[in-house]
Design a protein around this nucleic acid. Sequence first.
RNA 1: GAGCCUGUAGCUCAACGGCAGAGCGCUACACUGUGGCUGUAGAUGUUGAGGGUUCGAAACCCUUCAGGCUCCCCA
Length: 423
Amino acid sequence: MKKSIPAVKGTREFYPEEMALRNFIYEKVRAASQMFGYQEWDAPFIETIDLYAAKSGEELVKKQSFTFEDRGGDFVTLRPELTPSLARMIAAKQGELNFPVRWWSFGPFWRYEQPQRGRTREFFQWNIDMLGVNSPEADAELIAVGATFLRSVRLNPERAVIYVNNRRLMDSEFDALGILPEKRLDISNLVDRRTKMEPAKWDAYALELGLDQRQLDGLKDILANFDLWKKSEELVRLFAALEALGVKEYVKFDPNIMRGLLYYTGTVFESFDTSGSVKRAIFGGGRYDNLLADVGGQPLSGVGFAMGDVVAGIILQESGLVPEFVPTPASVLVTVFDESMWMKSFELASELRSAGLNTMVFPEPAKLQKQFKFADKMKIKIALTIGPDEAANGQVAVKSLTTGEQVIVKREAVADEIRRLLR
RNA sequence: GAGCCUGUAGCUCAACGGCAGAGCGCUACACUGUGGCUGUAGAUGUUGAGGGUUCGAAACCCUUCAGGCUCCCCA
């Protein structure tokens, strides 16, 4: 073998079996999105670097995106996220769009990161957003879309949970502790890290950030208070809506969910695999109020979330929820008895295709044993044979590879016989 | 960007510094008009790549690539 050129680090090759999983996820994503009336859309896969430099930190853009100079000397970036493109496209047609806008998308993204479990450099991501409505009920709808997806892939609430929190609630709690607004970013970072650090080290880190002991104790009380949501009118309304939407069993309040503070301003939520097999979120999102600020549009509030295909795929596989792989879309194989019968097989296959049946012809005359073995391995359910005897009588041998039974039928009746067997 | 672990047949993995192997899969035949099951026989390797130490390296050392687990990050 010649020396092989490896695939780019962090990319995945989609052999038919992996492609089937990707398509399975895509189909469920589409079904959940459309069930709530969302429209499919997409943005360019490459954008100018400026689009991201405006909003995201420069470090992020420089170190964690695929950016390169094109032949004209411009710097372009393989999109690491969809939100800036969404903001631009909404702003460009803000005057003519019919609000609320409900849009969803599923496509490729790239991030130049260290690949590890649940994270690759090239991945597919479901994005779904509602723009132009600012209410807890709208937030609930997005959470319900996510829950509907989980339910549709049969990830039950014991296996996957959506944790919810609210930024405004946390801000007011922080305020009550006398934590200054400019410290909020640090504190939310601190909260995010809590599960990753040893308690003593976490305490020390908190004090290092400038909290005093009273504030630290207060913060711990907040993070342990799972009834805190009752103090937030938004969350009370949110949970009432979730109940009415029939997804309450998937959703839990958790004051530890922060999701950074980059642009979320209200409700935030994250879905996790409860088995702990993958520590990364299945999906996450929330409400953002300042989406269009940086791209020159009128103020517009939105709520949305994103789900990568990598974590979702791992969890589905581990849970045994991926449908059995079907190697070929053909339900029928027409064998080629010998060279003299070859064209007869082609003609038969053509008739069956016209009748709406996915039909494959063995590519050459070969031992029937070999042809049937092939059909078996491809899990094709029905094999047809036209030999000299059948040809002489205008018949076809129809064999079910499921039951092993074979019947000889008239050529005109073949399609109906196949349909009967496939039922 | 940093640390640790791993890399051997198509797959899963063995092999004390001393002849590179097993199971599964694959191919052929038994079975020249029919798959699965069974039996018999057979094929397959630059041990990720490159360099070094050694009489001798899959093994030890260095470099590099890829994967995994952490840190960082997670838009």
